[in-house]
Design a protein around this nucleic acid. Structure first.
Lengths: 201, 201
DNA sequence: TAGTAACTCGTACAAACGTACAGTCACTAA
DNA sequence: TTAGTGACTGTACGTTTGTACGAGTTACTA
């Protein structure tokens, strides 16, 4: 299942038109939402015409699917960049966390897209969130088999803990930033507040 | 500034058509987003025709404004339902928190709408978030004048702390719920996990 | 009672959207 | 060379959207 990924580069200058379309769509979807982004502005951003988008992806929904697939891909690549047996198992967890964090920081559009996806998520199986949860669950199972992750809590609880800790802070940051900007005059000198999200029970 | 509010009831059966339109819009905007909600479905939900919406509100943007105004109104009413001098000042804070929490629980559409508003927030002054921040700031100032709230942290920090603690949990809950549903089989017996959001520094 | 203002409806329209399709170009295989 | 295939363009079409507007109805006032 963890086959060799081609990793579909999200950042490069010489890409096929098909990839340029997908990357432009990710950025625009993340920034303005899928509904508010017309295929025409995607085409313009990618330097192609609307017809070509239809040619390559068929429908807008299929383009969205491709964008989400690319996002899951990035997560997989980041996680697999730290193999299970490469380090003392205690370090694998924190290293993988770091790799994902670096990936998200390098492609902030993914964070923005995820925020919207979770918001609009119809909770259907096959959802983007579902796929990421499954990915996380696999990771937890791996760690358990290696005798590392505790088996005291249920798998579901561990998955929630990981994803919410990782994503929750990123989701709430815009709220913090906006408020911080408005009271910038009174937040003298000190850096912007930081969030921590914890899951209990 | 804290004049007598007419409180614009959000839940009642005998309302003017104008109010029914606003309430239907709040619910539908919250559920599907503003862009994905056509004036025609709002009209149907309110039991009127599209023409009447235009007559009362002019544009869709103005209708959205009215919805947001009604939300801010609800917050004000909830806060002012616990007057400053009604109780020992130590209790005023927790009682006001409770009043707001009750209001949000009673009208969950407000929570959903807020989640979307923060997401799409263009960060402009006059925003919904801006207005709520200002409302919170006023509250904090009142408490400071009463000698209750600490003046050790800046006003901005206190506003962020209050709003994020109050709203952050509600925003992340759908994420937790969706994941919890998918691992329902493994979350045997135990209730759903609970979130806590804290702000540092 | 007459009149006027507000409420409500139904229709109409321009703009924007996603999609379909015919056609052009470049390149490869036979 | 010829036939064919995939990338790519431009136009066109049907649908849905927000908005405009005239006409009918109700309610209140003089």
């Amino acid at each position: 299942m963890a086959g060799h990924k081609q990793a579909a580069p999200l950042r490069a200058d010489d890409l096929t038109a098909k990839a340029r379309i997908r990357n432009a769509a990710l950025i625009l979807f993340a920034e303005n939402g899928v509904d508010a982004t017309s295929l025409r502005v995607v085409a313009e951003a990618a330097g192609v015409t609307v017809g070509l988008i239809v040619h390559h992806y068929g429908t807008k929904e299929a383009l969205r699917e491709a964008v989400e697939l690319a996002i899951v891909d990035q997560f997989e690549v980041a996680i697999e960049s730290v193999p299970l047996n490469s380090q003392p198992p205690a370090k694998v967890v924190t290293e993988r966390d770091l790799a994902v964090a670096r990936m998200l920081q390098q492609t902030p559009a993914i964070v923005d897209y995820l925020r919207r996806a979770i918001l609009d998520g119809k909770g259907e199986r096959g959802d983007l969130v579902s796929r990421l949860s499954e990915l996380t669950a696999q990771q937890v199972r791996e760690l358990r088999d290696a005798g590392l992750a505790s088996t005291k809590n249920t798998l579901g609880e561990q998955v929630i803990s990981i994803m919410v800790r990782q994503l929750g802070r990123l989701f709430l940051q815009p709220l913090v930033d906006q408020i911080a900007d408005e009271f910038a005059a009174e937040l003298t000198g000190s850096q912007k507040p930081r969030l921590t999200v914890t899951v209990e029970r």
